[in-house]
């Protein structure tokens, strides 16, 4: 009788995915140590993920976009609602320039929803996390700060008919405003939520068409024309583009700082974000820089920031051609 074949000796080496789960830091380090450095996803250090933009998928909203950035998927819907000027408690001064008008009245309302089951870190049904709230605020700040939406597009004007021949020509007055609600839902989240959210906002705003609204003096109400040919696009002033970079560093308080090595990773995914503490987000528009946002560490110096800004300018060229 032949004895039971003894089981094959279990190997002590792990498959790649187990190594990645057990020790994410050394796993990424092992990849980056190669020459030239390559990331676990097969990308180079400065490579962005493939993006895919689909617009107009939501038929009930005035503008919408679905953006995929690798495995991060975001839906953004733009919904216009009417705010009557008479309902504003302290109406803005007519004579004041309307540079700050949008923000004073809060006519752009972004909201980011992460509690959709988009990632294991964000449980569905939970109240908005700190990340969701601070992302909403970042989108809001950039919407107002970049002056992307023309305030005149959101004003619903009314010129009273001339009753008496001797009267001066009537001045048009603002009877109501459009308020744009930007709902940003993450379907799946695999790192870099801000870039994906902003790309979705841009794509959605660029395809937003608002119906022609006019003031009906007899009914004291705003009426919208249902005719499709009366829908008009927003005139967007700028096309800001953002790029996020994460820094992986072997710096350790137990080691000399000079021994530490670090790599700047463009457009990080979740596995990379989890082991990177320092992050940098750059916002550019054409030749202008609209924002730099760096926190979390002390590895990126001036030269590295400038390098990232250069990469973002290149990214702007690429993205501004593919936006709808």
């Amino acid at each position: 009788m032949a004895a039971d074949p003894s089981p094959a000796p279990t190997s002590l080496s792990f498959p790649r995915s187990t190594f990645a789960k057990l020790t994410p830091g050394p796993f990424l380090h092992a990849h980056l140590k190669q020459n030239p450095p390559i990331r676990p996803s097969g990308r180079t250090l400065t490579q962005f993920r493939e993006q895919q933009i689909t617009t107009g998928s939501l038929t009930h909203s005035h503008g919408s976009a679905v953006v995929r950035l690798g495995d991060t998927t975001v839906v953004c819907s733009v919904q216009g609602e009417i705010l009557k000027a008479a309902d504003i408690p302290s109406p803005p001064d007519e004579s004041a320039d309307n540079e700050d008008l949008l923000e004073t009245l809060g006519l752009l309302v972004p909201n980011i929803e992460l509690s959709t089951g988009c990632s294991p870190a964000h449980l569905p049904g939970n109240p908005p996390s700190t990340l969701a709230q601070s992302l909403s605020w970042k989108v809001r700040t950039l919407l107002y700060g970049s002056e992307i939406v023309n305030p005149e597009d959101l004003q619903i004007m009314f010129t009273a008919p001339k009753i008496d021949e001797e009267d001066d020509a009537p001045v048009p007055e603002v009877k109501a405003y459009w308020t744009l609600y930007l709902d940003i839902m993450f379907i799946s989240l695999d790192g870099n939520p801000f870039d994906a959210a902003w790309l979705a906002v841009m794509a959605a705003l660029r395809t937003t068409r608002l119906p022609r609204a006019s003031w009906d003096a007899d009914r004291e109400a705003v009426v919208c024309s249902p005719a499709l040919e009366h829908y008009a696009h927003l005139t967007l002033h700028t096309t800001p583009v953002t790029a996020t970079f994460a820094v992986f560093s072997t710096a350790n308080p137990l080691k000399q700082r000079s021994e530490a090595e670090s790599w700047v990773l463009t457009d990080p995914d979740t596995s990379e974000e989890e082991v990177c503490r320092e992050a940098l987000t750059v916002t550019v528009d054409g030749k202008r820089v609209l924002g730099i946002d760096k926190a979390g560490g002390r590895v990126i110096g001036m030269e590295a920031v400038e390098e990232c800004v250069k990469l973002t300018f290149a990214r702007w060229k690429e993205v501004s051609t593919i936006l709808p």
Binding site: T141, G145, K287, V289, G291, A295, G297, R298, M302, V305
Partner: peptide, 17 residues
């Protein structure tokens, strides 16, 4: 070493330097 940088507005890299 640069610990944090939060910049907003309109500027170019010469100004930032």
């Amino acid at each position: 070493e640069l610990v944090m940088d939060q910049s907003t507005g309109v500027f170019d890299m010469g100004i930032w330097e």
